[in-house]
Design a protein around this nucleic acid. Structure first.
Lengths: 184, 184
DNA sequence: TACAGTAGAGAACGAACGTTCTCCACGGCA
DNA sequence: TGCCGTGGAGAACGTTCGTTCTCTACTGTA
């Protein structure tokens, strides 16, 4: 027997995958229904509509990404390697054929102007990433502008890794971040 | 008398403004027709449809942005200030209330997966910016990885200036770029 | 077996889209 | 003046979307 929670999760997983791959407006509710193996009725009984679904997908993805990058950070051997681990995560992620950059930047580009809810989730994710980097950099005793710079390198590498379909930007950003950490 | 060329330009200007502000899929052809003050018939006689219009808008914007940043670069007083001028352009641009980040990144997020034409224009613009920065940095005798890093800082600042609605990321990126140029 | 209630399949609906077509007003020219 | 062709206004068309509704099959229970 499949509980509602399980069905919800299946829908969210499918929605996350499709929205990320094709952008939200390019995925119809019927396509999503088919991909999740769920009836349209059930879909609308579990979610308040497409907008709410998009929002929930983003929130869920924020948690998932945070957890996954944390794994990279925690297995690092030194404080500096901890900071740089986020770029290793990016390089590994971009190896998957369906890498499409930062889902939050993408969603903000597509839906930001029309949805305050999406904008709020995106801002929350960005300030979270920025805060996490800042905490690690501060623990190394480095000035705050170094953390800001590494965050911007991360963001720039995220989009350009997607656009160029190569993990080169991730490696370049890692190198720059290391230089900043070692020369300040 | 208004020539076809003038009408074309008026349509392209309106399309650029609307697409950038609201994302392409959120702007209907009828809204664009009204904004440009043109009949639907004329619109379709001048352009091959919405897709072609989006593509042409992006190409036109690439030229316009290149020209505008060049103005900042050319008035700079030193090679280093020339490189950093791109961040001054960004800070000034973000001052306008309707700043929405990089139109090419935004378009790639929204249309990249479904349009090879859009993807091609975006890649062209990105490699152009990267090349321009690389040329200036190389002229200073700095290693290539410094240029790559400054480019990524530029890209990251572009998106985060939009998301945070503040020119702070532009200033942070400028500071980081200056540090890279002065310590290598 | 008879029945109540749930859930799935997918038809149906209203709105919005991109695109084309119809109709009419107007200006140049004989 | 009469005629032709261009162009504007916007109705119309076919499609697609998000969302809701209808009908039917099935399950558990007495």
């Amino acid at each position: 027997m499949t509980t509602d929670t399980e069905v919800r999760e299946r829908v969210l997983e499918a929605a996350d995958r499709l929205f990320y791959a094709k952008s939200a407006h390019a995925v119809g509710m019927d396509e999503l229904r088919a991909e999740a193996g769920v009836s349209l009725k059930k879909l609308y009984s579990l979610f308040d509509g497409k907008d709410a679904l998009v929002e929930e997908v983003l929130r869920r993805r924020e948690e998932a990404i945070t957890a996954e990058t944390m794994k990279y950070v925690l297995r690092a051997s030194s404080p500096q390697e901890q900071v740089l681990a986020v770029f290793d995560w990016m390089a590994d992620s971009s190896g998957t054929t369906d890498f499409r950059g930062c889902a939050f930047i993408n969603s903000y580009a597509e839906l930001g102007p029309s949805s305050d809810r999406v904008t709020a989730v995106v801002r929350h994710q960005k300030s979270g990433v920025r805060g996490a980097i800042a905490a690690m950099v501060e623990a190394m005793g480095k000035p705050e502008w170094v953390a800001d710079s590494i965050f911007l390198l991360f963001e720039g590498a995220m989009t350009n890794t997607a656009i160029t379909v190569s993990s080169e930007p991730a490696r370049q950003a890692r190198k720059a971040a290391r230089f900043l950490l070692e020369s300040t």
